[in-house]
C-alpha cells in the first residue's frame, strides 16, 4: 500500500507514553507503574479522540517491545464479535495461556513483566452478560493476565467490573496541546495552512483530536490531487474554504441570519430562508447544533427564553432523529424560537 494511503491517525499514533498529548496525571501514574513493571487492571474512560487507545497501546509497547507484544497483548474492539460466547472462549483461553518467554534481547531493552494484557476497546458496547462473565475471569487469572477496559461511558460498565479496576479519567484535550500535535503533523507532512485553519479544524472536531487529524488529511488529499492535475490550486496550502467544506460546517453567516430572523415573527421570510438553506444542502442536524451554540453564547437572550428554547431544541432534535422532514422541522424551530423571544 502506498504511504499516502495510511490514515494519519494511525501514522501519528504515539508510540511512547511521553508522546501522548496532555493527560498529565494519568500518564504520570502509568509511568510509575512502568518503572515498577507492574500493572493493576485498568479502566480508561473519557470522550472520543482523547487518547485512551493510544495510551494503552503505547504503554504495552514500552512494556513488552514490538516483538513480544504480538504474543502478550490481545486487542478486541466493538467490531469484533464480543458476546458472552467470545468471553467464555477466546478471552478465557487467552487469559489461561502461560506467559510466553521473553528473549534475552527483549529483556535487556524492555521491562517485560510476566503477564499478558487483554485490551477491550469500546467496552461500553459489551452486553451486561458478557461483562458479567468477565468478573470471575479477571480474578482467576490475575496472576498472569491484566485487563484494560476502554470506554466512553463509565456508567455502562457494571459495578462489579469497575470495582476490580483502577479507573483513569481522560479529559478533553486542551486547545494548546491539541494545536501543538496538529501543528507537528502538519509540518511533518510538509503542509502549509492558512492562518486559523488549525483552529477551525479543532473547533469543528469539538475536542476530538482524531477527527481533527482525519479532516486535515482529507483537506490535504484534495489539495494534492488538484495540483497533480495542473489545476491552479496551491498543492501545499490548505485553505479555510476547503476545510469548511470538508467538515460540513455551516457558515456562520447562515446561522447568524437565522438568529436575526427570530427577532420578529415573519413566517414568510423565515420560510424563504429555510428553503434556501435546505436547497443549499446544509444538513439540519448540523444547523441545529451550531444554532444551539450561537443561542447559548448570545448574551442578548434572557435566561427564561434560553430555557424555553432549550426545551424546543430537544424536541426538534428528536423529530430530526425520527426522520421528520428537514425543511418543516427547521421552519418550526425558527418560528417557535421567534415566538419565545417575542414573549420575553
Amino acid at each position: 500500500m502506498d504511504a499516502r494511503q495510511i490514515p494519519w491517525v494511525e501514522k501519528y499514533r504515539p508510540s511512547k507514553l511521553d508522546e501522548v498529548a496532555a493527560q498529565g496525571n494519568t500518564v504520570e501514574v502509568l509511568r510509575k507503574s512502568l518503572k515498577l513493571a507492574n500493572l493493576p487492571h485498568m479502566l480508561f474512560y473519557g470522550p472520543p479522540g482523547t487518547g485512551k487507545t493510544s495510551t494503552i497501546l503505547a504503554l504495552c509497547k514500552e512494556l513488552f517491545g514490538p516483538k513480544l507484544m504480538k504474543s502478550r497483548v490481545l486487542e478486541l474492539n466493538a467490531s469484533d464479535e464480543r458476546g458472552i460466547n467470545v468471553v467464555r472462549k477466546s478471552i478465557k483461553t487467552f487469559a489461561q495461556l502461560t506467559v510466553s518467554a521473553a528473549t534475552p534481547e527483549d529483556k535487556q531493552n524492555y521491562p517485560c513483566p510476566p503477564f499478558k494484557v487483554i485490551i477491550l476497546d469500546e467496552a461500553d458496547s459489551m452486553t451486561q452478560d458478557a461483562q458479567g462473565a468477565l468478573r470471575r475471569i479477571m480474578e482467576n487469572y490475575s496472576e498472569i493476565t491484566r485487563f484494560c477496559l476502554v470506554c466512553n461511558y463509565v456508567t455502562r460498565i457494571i459495578d462489579p467490573v469497575t470495582s476490580r479496576c483502577s479507573k483513569f479519567r481522560f479529559t478533553s484535550l486542551d486547545r494548546n496541546s491539541a494545536l501543538a500535535r496538529l501543528d507537528y503533523i502538519r509540518s511533518n507532512e510538509g503542509l502549509m495552512c492558512e492562518d486559523g485553519v488549525l483552529d477551525l479544524l479543532l473547533h469543528a472536531a469539538n475536542g476530538d483530536l482524531r477527527k481533527a487529524i482525519t479532516y486535515l488529511q482529507s483537506a490535504s488529499m484534495f489539495h494534492q490531487g488538484a495540483a497533480e492535475n495542473g489545476m491552479e490550486v496551491d498543492s501545499t496550502t490548505v485553505t479555510m474554504e476547503s476545510v469548511q467544506e470538508i467538515t460540513g460546517l455551516v457558515p456562520e453567516s447562515v446561522i447568524e441570519g437565522f438568529l436575526q430572523l427570530t427577532e420578529s415573527i415573519d413566517v414568510d421570510t423565515i420560510k424563504r430562508a429555510v428553503e434556501d438553506a435546505v436547497n443549499d444542502g446544509w444538513s439540519a442536524t448540523q444547523i441545529l447544533s451550531q444554532f444551539h451554540d450561537t443561542i447559548i453564547q448570545n448574551s442578548l437572550i434572557g435566561t427564561n427564553a434560553k430555557t424555553e428554547i432549550s426545551l424546543l431544541l430537544s424536541r426538534i432534535d428528536r423529530c430530526l432523529t425520527d426522520g421528520a422532514d428537514e425543511e418543516l422541522t427547521l421552519l418550526d424551530l425558527l418560528v417557535q424560537c421567534a415566538e419565545i423571544r417575542s414573549k420575553y
Partner: peptide
C-alpha cells in the same frame, strides 16, 4: 401560508411539523 393572516401562521407551521413527524 399564502392565504392566511400572519397571526395564524405560526400555529399552522407548528401543526404541519408535528403531523409530518407523526406521518413518519
Amino acid at each position: 401560508l399564502t392565504r392566511v393572516s400572519s397571526s395564524k401562521k405560526p400555529s399552522i407551521v407548528t401543526a404541519a411539523a408535528l403531523y409530518d413527524h407523526r406521518i413518519q
